[in-house]
């Protein structure tokens, strides 16, 4: 499982070069920029703050609202700005992947807003977005049970792979399984998959994703410490 069999010379269980930087958007309460190879995302958090529209208010907790958005020039063919079904779905699943980690009950009647902007897309954008959002939440000082860490694993050309590129995702037998987890408890908070695959292989892919998550967790912790290095 260590031989280089991938176009970019990576090992099968190797993540693309990662870059993480905390505190990139000054106006926001918390922010982070994350890169996985050619995938780049910026996430920023505002809140807890007063909630608008007021009918979304919950008397017993804060409401987490996530926006996932691709910039028009982040993909080859310009993406038209505005509403689309994919972004709406991703906003929702990302919200659910982060929510278990938060002590939302500490801030009744408020909103916590996360804006995730994909500035350059080359597969694995939702995983990169979750990693950035998790860093931004921590940076904003929002109480959390754990960081949330995410990566996609899958299959391409009959091989099980971690953190696939767009090129690998385009293989005829490609399986893409994005996953997020809370590393301390090992609980999975996001799981999606498409393609035809045996349940046994799914287990293997999930194991692979877990290895990836643990590596990313270390990188996230390092990025948070880096911000406050004297």
């Amino acid at each position: 499982m260590t031989k280089s069999e991938r176009a970019d010379n990576r090992k099968l269980d190797e993540i693309r070069p990662m870059k993480m930087k905390v505190g990139v958007i000054k106006r926001a309460d918390g922010s982070a920029e994350v890169e996985f190879g050619d995938t780049k995302v910026v996430a920023a958090v505002y809140g807890p703050r007063q909630i608008h529209p007021r009918h979304q208010e919950r008397p017993d907790r804060s409401v987490l609202r996530c926006r996932y958005n691709m910039l028009p020039f982040s993909v080859s063919d310009r993406k038209r700005p505005g509403y689309d079904r994919r972004s709406t779905e991703l906003g929702k699943v990302i919200t659910e992947s982060l929510q278990p980690a938060l002590f939302l009950e500490e801030f009744p009647k408020t909103a916590i807003d996360i804006d995730m902007e994909i500035t350059q897309a080359d597969a694995g954008t939702r995983a990169a977005a979750i990693n950035a959002a998790s860093l931004a939440l921590a940076h904003a000082g929002i109480p959390m049970r754990d960081l949330v860490t995410s990566v996609a694993a899958g299959r391409a050309n009959k091989k099980l792979l971690l953190d696939m590129t767009k090129e690998e995702e385009d293989a005829p037998d490609a399986i893409d399984l994005p996953m997020a987890m809370m590393p301390r408890t090992g609980k999975v908070t996001l799981l999606q998959m498409d393609g035809i695959v045996s349940p046994e292989d799914i287990e293997k892919i999930v194991d692979l994703a877990e290895i990836g998550c643990m590596k990313i967790y270390e990188a996230q912790k390092k990025a948070l410490h880096e911000k406050y290095r004297s």
């Binding site: 050619d38 020039f73 982040s74 063919d77």
Partner: peptide
């Protein structure tokens, strides 16, 4: 050249203001 997928791109900062522009062609 800040975004590889764009035909052209630029990031401008003035103090703490940050603006990103990208050119796509069709």
């Amino acid at each position: 050249g800040v975004s590889k997928k764009a035909e052209g791109s630029a990031k401008v900062t003035i103090g703490e203001t940050i603006v990103l522009a990208g050119v796509k062609m069709a």
